[in-house]
């Protein structure tokens, strides 16, 4: 197996163009397991660890995205996201905090999560919820392509990267409202999601973002649930009044989230449980985010 160690991003893109089958390795928390379990024998490894800009993030304004955006380097580890970006990216920070163990969070990255595109990846529900204008910055020697998050996941463990492309960063709008993330595991730490749910309130444009993990072939959005609850909030003027959503609408939201999933029975859990748990998580996280939103309204008043 060849081991490629580019020193710069340009070298990395050149190497990937030359060896399209080379497997990028960032934190290695997925790649090394695959190698050790003998599930994968790539012809070459492309080590991205020498490229310092991948472990940096910056904030700014970018075309095609509203408001302030965090441009998160592909290799920024979860530990740092939780420590440095909890205010800007609360959903992703919460999701990152549920990943593996402290050791894994010190190495694992959102770029790696996206590279693997596992339906159980915990970053995905948070990224989906953060908005349709979350963009994956894919780069190759041919140039930069901004892939909207909704077009990124294309199949079980498959994403829409071209063979010569690498993920440079993810552009995520800074949260304009409360965000939450919940995940089910059959033990209290260090567990792959049986199912997961991310939610983000977007008071600026009156939408609600959602993301479902581990309950369909790809991470996906609960579109009907989003539309339903956004409609409720708008029709009843709740964004302005900060009034109660009420049990019926919360219940309905949960049902729609569960309905949006297409889970299977496997060793980690049954399809029926996954649907049930998604509904519960959806109700709870909606309640938490809404409470937080109404409190912020009141304290602003």
């Amino acid at each position: 197996m060849e081991f490629l160690r580019p020193a710069t991003w340009d070298e990395a893109l050149a190497a990937k163009a030359e060896h399209p089958s080379a497997l990028p390795i960032s934190g290695g928390t997925d790649v090394m397991v695959e190698l050790n379990f003998d599930r994968h024998r790539p012809s070459a490894l492309l080590d991205l660890n020498r490229i310092s800009e991948l472990t940096a993030w910056e904030s700014g304004r970018y075309e095609g995205q509203e408001g302030e955006v965090i441009r998160l380097g592909a290799a920024v580890p979860y530990t740092r996201i939780t420590r440095e970006l909890s205010a800007e990216l609360p959903g992703l920070a919460l999701a990152g905090n549920t990943v593996g163990s402290p050791q894994i969070r010190n190495r694992g990255s959102v770029g790696g999560n996206l590279g693997g595109a596992s339906p159980a990846g915990d970053a995905h529900p948070a990224l989906l919820a953060a908005g349709r204008d979350v963009l994956v910055e894919a780069e190759s020697v041919r140039g930069t392509r901004l892939i909207p998050i909704d077009e990124f996941y294309v199949g079980v463990k498959r994403n829409s990267l071209e063979p010569d492309e690498l993920i440079r960063a993810v552009r995520i709008p800074v949260a304009d409202g409360p965000q939450q993330f919940s995940k089910i595991g059959t033990r209290n730490a260090m567990v792959i999601a049986v199912c997961a749910f991310g939610i983000a309130l977007h008071p600026k444009n009156g939408t609600v973002g959602t993301g479902i993990g581990s309950a369909a072939p790809t991470p996906r959005r609960a579109v009907e649930a989003e539309e339903f609850i956004a409609g409720e909030l708008a029709e009843r003027g709740l964004w302005q009044s900060g009034g109660l959503i009420g049990p019926a609408a919360i219940q309905r939201f949960g049902e729609l989230v569960a309905a949006a999933a297409s889970p299977i029975d496997d060793v980690r859990g049954t399809a029926a449980y996954r649907r049930h748990a998604l509904a519960v998580m959806a109700r709870r996280t909606l309640t938490w985010t809404w409470n937080e939103y109404t409190q912020s309204l009141r304290s602003a008043a």
Partner: peptide, 15 residues
């Protein structure tokens, strides 16, 4: 960390 689900953040006391 003290409640079921722990860091998975499934409950803030509910249930």
């Amino acid at each position: 960390r003290d409640i079921p689900g722990a860091l998975s953040n499934t409950s803030h006391g509910e249930g």
